[in-house]
Design a binder for these strands. Structure first.
Lengths: 339, 339
DNA sequence: GTGAAAGCGCTAACAT
DNA sequence: ATGTTAGCGCTTTCAC
């Protein structure tokens, strides 16, 4: 690597290491002449400070850890992108890791990140994480820590989320606004907070518009996949011909429903309007293009890093702040599947 | 962080730091009794070695850098996943960064990675990178370095690629095998090596089957997007009704073409068969499901890390090896858009 | 304005 | 089997 050390420069110049260090770091108490001499030589020799030594002194790495359920996942990849780009502005790099939605793995990955002495951690909880001691341990160790997207009320820390209730309510309201009278919902089991909240928002919208929530057109899939959506779509086509609007809790489910409707020759949006959730890339290339709720991953990632950065600063300055939760706004994106 | 240092343990136990260090690292020349005493106390105090100190001593970080054109990109995200999972097995973590397909940014990101003293770098070249001094500099500095997917013959280093010629040839052969007589190709400009090679493979397949390459049904889009594919698809429907097979160099283009065919009421695969390239997730949820060429990102990432790891070992042991190029096999995936 | 010296926490060559 | 010592490369008092 860079063989030129501070010591080497100091020897060549016949000065002490400390003077060289100060000159390089633009300290005030170095004469302009000395400073110039040092900096010129440093440039000439292409001097790069040894980060390992700096890290040891400062006890910080300028690296943060980003841990989430899946890497191969449109939404989470937009988060990586948002975190990485924001981190870069502050001189931080990002180690990326995934839990594969597995609790045990989450514990392990968290451990690995700590072992690398990251300056802070960003985490989106695994689906099956219901105990939080591993997370609380990290926080109690004083490691700057922010939860994003999949969070838990049982953990006291900074968080970045969207308002699922409101987002789902707006999506449903959109269907109502364009004239839907009989709206079905396609969802997965009411387990994760996100699903629960979206379901809540759906019912809230119906209620506020004087519509009844009809349990028979509330479809629960075994997951939130394309095929779960298709199965529900098929049921709608076969047994609930009066349905004129579908709210699917994920884009994948919505696209599955779209396919079922197509196969039953039900026109979208003329007979049935469909709206999804997340604004994945693929919603722009379905036929018809899918209306959805934009869940801005890049913004969430950006906000999460900023919050973490604030925590890192606070830690350095020994200030304690109460935990906050930042809510990133979502918007309904109206495309060709609703009208 | 962990306040328990080696020194602290040695003081408590009244031994020297070196003995404690040896005991902890299971050196042979420590008495079993001592070893146990040390390890027990270390466990009790939850001792974690300070990585910064270890890094400084060993001059290695056990972190590698992964730099690629885009993070929000199905194929590249599978690569991240493959790299991260493989790296973990060897105790390495992965810093992820993107160039946004910009040459200047590639230089900058490479610099940032070096500044973090990563033990090695994995790079997939930006589209508009035509000078390679920044890359050669890294290699000449002795930093373990592997190029993957988007590589260049002008750089001498280890590489992981697919055989684009062969893959395209197989895709075309698949169309021929199912009876296509008039095959159009949809591509972007013949700039990147990947595009050039796929184009070559296409023509090779035609030639080997005694078919003529017809320039009038070789469609060049301005990029490799959905809309570029759709534009080409429209032209085919309007002016080349005898086309019965389409090979699109990317899945996105293929899906665009699919949409055009649909709008012109051309039946797929009955009238026209369509095959894409890459096996992005979304090919599984189009109607009809898209046949494609699997470009296994996870495997590529895995191979790239393994190669890099080998280089890291070689560097430690002062052995030099000639550069190799690993070719990851691709397969044609036949779905509903070809028959 | 400059330099000497200590120390961050660890490992390893070299005694003993 | 254990301890001494030096050193990785940097920053930061503190003295001059």
């Amino acid at each position: 690597m860079s063989k030129v050390s501070l010591t080497k420069i100091s020897e060549i110049l016949g000065m002490s290491k400390s003077t060289v260090s100060k000159a390089l770091n633009n300290y005030a108490d170095v004469s302009p002449g000395t400073r110039k001499k040092v900096q010129d030589l440093a440039n000439e020799l292409n001097y790069k400070p040894n980060i390992f030594a700096q890290n040891l002194r400062s006890q910080e790495s300028k690296i943060i850890g980003l841990l989430m359920p899946e890497i191969v996942h449109y939404f989470f990849s937009t988060i990586i992108s948002g975190v990485a780009e924001t981190a870069e502005k502050y001189g931080y790099s990002v180690i990326v890791a995934q839990t594969k939605d597995d609790y045990k793995n989450e514990i392990k990955q968290l451990e690995l990140l700590l072992d690398k002495n990251v300056d802070g951690i960003l985490l989106s909880l695994a689906d099956d994480t219901i105990h939080f001691n591993h997370v609380k341990d990290v926080i109690n160790q004083g490691v700057p820590f922010v939860l994003f997207d999949r969070t838990s009320k049982l953990i006291d820390c900074n968080k970045v989320v969207i308002d699922d209730v409101k987002a789902a309510q707006m999506a449903t309201q959109h269907l109502i606004d364009i004239g839907c009278k009989k709206i079905a919902i396609i969802r997965n089991q009411l387990k994760s907070q996100g699903t629960i909240d979206r379901h809540k928002g759906f019912k809230k919208a119906l209620l506020e518009n004087g519509m009844v929530y009809d349990k028979s057109i509330d479809f629960e899939g075994r997951d939130f996949s394309f095929s779960a959506g298709k199965i529900a779509g098929n049921k709608i086509c076969e047994s609930h011909k009066d349905v004129d609007g579908i709210f699917a809790l994920t884009d994948l489910m919505a696209i599955g429903a779209l396919e079922a409707l197509k196969e039953h020759n039900v026109a979208v949006p003329d007979q049935v309007s469909v709206i999804g959730f997340s604004n994945w890339f693929l919603t722009q290339i379905t036929t018809p293009h899918l209306s959805t709720v934009d869940q801005p991953g890049f913004e969430i990632g950006k906000a999460a890093f900023n919050l973490l950065y604030q925590e890192i600063q606070n830690k350095k300055n020994n200030v304690k702040e109460a935990s906050k939760t930042i809510v990133i706004p979502t918007t309904v994106i109206s495309r060709d599947s609703t009208k």
